[in-house]
Simulated assay, not measured.
Amino acid sequence: MAATLPPFPGTTGRRDWRTAFEAIRKLLANGDDTVQVFRIMRALNVGSTERGYARFLATPEGGRMAYERVELATIFAQPGFADQFAPGTVGAAYRDFLVSTGYSADGLAAVSREGSEIEDIVHPYAWFGRRVRDTHDIWHIMTGYKADESLGEAALVAFSYAQVGGLGWAFIGAAAALKSLRVTKSTLFAKAVWEGYRHGRKAQWLQGEDYLKLMHEPLDAARARLGIRQPVAYLKAQRELGPELASYLSERRQATAEAGEPQRLAA
């Protein structure tokens, strides 16, 4: 059974709904504004980091990893890191992900720091929160949800809520699903989001994994071991809605795409 730990020092223990609603309006108006995702998480994910860290310590390898406190974003961003992995492994898929999206390993970390004074503080909870952040792209690879479309991000948000807890994840996923009913005139998007949640519930707890070892594991074997199912509803929605509706193409995203610059999409 997981240990009970004290709350994050300096926190009130109350959710900031005003900030959350302000941020979700901006996010739904512009899916490229990933900064709003982190504003929502900080506003609503009260207690989830503490609970996750306690659960992490209770896993067979969690104590060791917590003691070592490896910063995954720093490791992933090292020159040549992604080049070491054999074909067919999780790491090779990560390498392909970086090439196909144009993302950098520390790009999400940079976005998360905007407007935050606590992102990089030296504290076990803050470290665990960064670990959740830094494995986001690995979860895209493991689940098969694309990172450069709102459909894939929304499905992964729902998967993450089932895995990590924290009301912020649910808030974003539900808002994206509701918006999809108006934008797409279809329930396909919403069904894919719900499937993401169900698959997250059924999978093993991914935050307990040693990601530096996982990267060397064959991708299909890792998915099978962790109980990550094929996203049937997601693939159907992606196929039938088409790339424009799946991505909620905003004016900013279109301009960025025309300029050939990488993007960070949210829901």
Rank of each mutant, 00 (worst) to 15 (best):
D134R: 00
A266N: 07
A109P: 01
D83R: 08
W139L: 15
E149Y: 00
P79W: 05
P79A: 11
A3S: 14
F128D: 02
A20H: 09
G10Q: 11
E114N: 09
E244Q: 07
R95M: 06
R252S: 12
F97V: 06
G227S: 11
D220T: 06
A154R: 03
M1Y: 04
Q254R: 10
M41T: 08
Y67K: 15
P7H: 09
H123N: 15
H123C: 09
T187N: 08
Q36H: 10
S180Q: 07
L181W: 11
E61K: 11
E68P: 06
L98I: 04
D83H: 01
G260F: 05
T256W: 05
P60I: 02
S112A: 14
E251N: 14
Q84E: 14
K185N: 14
E117F: 15
E119V: 14
V183M: 13
G196D: 00
A257G: 09
G88H: 04
L72V: 03
L151C: 04
L181Y: 01
A109R: 12
V232L: 14
D134H: 07
E114V: 15
S116V: 08
A246C: 15
R198M: 10
I138R: 03
G166S: 13
I172N: 03
R253Y: 02
M65K: 10
R131E: 03
I121S: 12
E258H: 05
L226I: 05
G173T: 01
A203G: 03
A73G: 12
S250I: 05
L98Q: 13
R198T: 10
L241Y: 01
A224E: 10
L212I: 13
L206E: 02
D96A: 12
A92Q: 02
I141K: 00
T74P: 02
F56K: 06
W205M: 14
A162G: 08
F97T: 03
S100F: 02
F81E: 03
L249T: 10
E119C: 12
A86P: 01
H140R: 05
S150Q: 12
K146L: 15
E22V: 12
R51G: 00
H123E: 09
V111S: 07
A155T: 04
M215A: 15
V183K: 13
K213S: 14
P243V: 05
R113V: 05
H140L: 06
D83C: 06
L249N: 08
G13T: 09
S112E: 06
S186Q: 06
V99R: 13
A177F: 07
Q263W: 11
P231M: 04
Q84C: 01
G227R: 07
V70T: 12
Q230M: 06
G173E: 05
Y103K: 11
L188A: 06
E22R: 09
D134Y: 07
D16H: 09
S186C: 12
L156F: 08
A29S: 13
M65T: 01
A255C: 13
R42G: 09
V99K: 06
V111W: 13
R69D: 09
I141R: 02
E258N: 08
Q230D: 07
L156Q: 10
A23R: 07
D32I: 05
K202E: 15
F21P: 00
L156H: 08
